[in-house]
Computed example of a mutant assay.
Amino acid sequence: MTTLRIGTRASTLAIAQSTLVKDRLARATGLDVELVTVTSEGDTNRASLASLGGTGVFASALREALLADECDLLVHSLKDLPTAKHPGLTLGAIPARADARDALCARDGLTLDQLPEGARVGTGSPRRVAQLRSRRGDLEIVDIRGNIDSRLGRVGDDLDAVLLSAAGLDRIGRLAEATELLGLGFWPSAPGQGALALEVREGDSGPDLTRGLSKLDHRETRLIVTAEREVLAGLEAGCAAPIGATAVVDAGLLLLSATVYAPDGTARLTASHGVTLEPGSLAAQLAEVHDVASRVVDELLAGGAADLVPKGSIS
């Protein structure tokens, strides 16, 4: 293998993220690395994300291209990747996570609390909708789609503010347009937000790519995002379920907290648990992560999480 091909969506953010991985893989392997753009239904259909079947709509076309050997690996925003394993594919690496917070981008430098009554705030995320309604029930929430540039372009025009990922803004050089970064303690973001996922064909990476992926993989990030995503998997939840989750590692202790919101923001349920990560293999630590995520899921279900959200979005 003399050239590695990275499959990516063609949006500004996807290209920026894939270019970061491209440059790091080139340094790690000494090989030429090129980008191969793939168009998904989510890129061409302007319907709401929930009506299209969730964030997985962005991954399906990319995965088809990878399985057809049109590229050698994919770069995903991990928060957009379904939790269920795709047949024939595996996560070859999860690089160090960027900022996991949500960012408010508002006119006139306003923060969330400073927005006037009735202000129009754009987002396409059911989680963010529920959080906005919980925090500011007076706001008018507008369902929006489109890339970061088009969303930001509406601020000061037909919208007073939009909510976006801080990591996404940073990767395209527009983080300075955020007027407030929302703390994870009171505003948990999507499981895996801020992290990238490098997906490859199972058992078919080759020594050069395998070596490169091992250099990019970040163990702590893999552990914390796995914990967050296992809450989604355990609740059998997807795009229609407003769920935020945050995991951190501090002095060898992994702390996981997850919140399930009613779509209208009138109720929420939070569970938090921790586990000491014993020194050892990644597999052993992932087993500990699975245990703590299971405890969080069990507490949420026992507390009535399934009654908070639309039927079918949590089993």
Rank of each mutant, 00 (worst) to 15 (best):
L159M: 10
E199Y: 08
V142H: 03
V155I: 05
D160M: 01
R154G: 02
A161C: 07
F186A: 13
I172H: 02
A195S: 12
L181K: 05
L181Q: 05
L209E: 07
A166N: 12
T179N: 13
S150C: 06
G146N: 07
N147Y: 05
L196P: 04
I144W: 04
G185K: 05
G168L: 11
L213P: 00
E199N: 02
L209C: 08
T210S: 10
R154Q: 12
R171E: 15
G194S: 01
E177H: 04
L175Q: 06
V142F: 07
V142T: 01
R145T: 13
V155L: 04
L181C: 11
T179R: 13
E177Q: 15
V200W: 08
A197W: 03
R171N: 14
A176H: 15
L182W: 12
E180G: 12
V200G: 00
R201T: 09
A195V: 05
R154Y: 09
F186S: 11
A197L: 03
L213K: 01
E177K: 06
I148Q: 06
D160C: 06
V155K: 05
G212A: 01
E199R: 03
L184F: 04
I141Q: 06
S189L: 03
L163I: 15
G203V: 02
G185I: 06
D157Y: 01
E180M: 12
A167C: 15
E180V: 10
R211F: 00
G146I: 10
A197N: 09
R171T: 11
R174Q: 14
L152M: 13
L198H: 09
D208C: 04
N147R: 07
L175Y: 03
F186M: 05
G203C: 02
G168Y: 14
E140K: 14
W187P: 02
P207R: 06
E202L: 12
L198P: 07
P188L: 04
L164E: 15
G168K: 11
G194Y: 05
G156D: 01
E140Y: 04
I172S: 10
K215D: 09
L198E: 03
V142R: 11
G206Y: 10
L164N: 09
A167G: 13
L169M: 14
D149W: 04
G194W: 06
S189F: 04
